[in-house]
Amino acid sequence: MNASGHRMGGASWLDRAALAAVAGALALAFLTPPEATQGNVARLFYLHVPSVSVAYMAFALALVASVGYLVSRRMAFDHLAVAAAEVGVVFTGFTILAGMIWAKPTWGVYWTWSARLTLTAIMLFVYIGYLALRRAIEDPQARARRAAIYGIVSVVQIPVVHFSVVWWRDIHQLGTVANPTGIQMDGILLVAFFAGLVAFTLVAAALVTRRYALAVLEAGVHDAAARGAGALAGDAVEAPRIGARAGEEHG
């Protein structure tokens, strides 16, 4: 159970590498010259675009792990799926936060209803739903199976959602919304972008590693608790305690 737990205490080489990469990426993001058309505000690009790339990578990893679980029925794949999905949700959140803060000075509003923005928000809710579904199921095997199926169904549905939203946007033709890719990137700006991508990938990898280790620990807790309950079934029933704490009966 503790196989990957030993390095959880301190910082692993991955944590150190991620921190170093973040420091480097921040230096590049802040020290490069301002972008030609948007000026300093365009520095949010180095935050926003790497976040969304990493989020997509994490969701792709969650899909691979879900398929892996259904094929092999090994719990390690389920641990990897939940780790990747949770980190993907976090980075999708970063994407939306950074995108909104970038949109306000650029277009005057926090939300532009572009197809991409709407899709990102829908994707966020799909994977929050995935995590909520997991929280609702107690039994590890049942949870792994149902979550894997939902994970695959969502990914199959996402291209359809994508086309529906893009088609809907094309019909409405909101001319007021500027094109977010109207940024001139070359030379050092491109280097800053790739530094951001590397840094965020390492941060996400470090977080997925830790979340995976947590999933292993939680599985261990579940097994240990199940063994305990089997030995002494009567222990699971608590005598009612009279007084201020009486309300805390388990539901």
Binding site: A29, P34, S51, F94, L97, I101, V203
Partner: peptide
């Protein structure tokens, strides 16, 4: 100004992380 928004954006994401 531009830098204000940049710091705000990086700050919010850093806090969330």
């Amino acid at each position: 100004n531009g830098w204000g928004w940049v710091l705000w954006g990086y700050g919010v994401v850093a806090a969330a992380l």
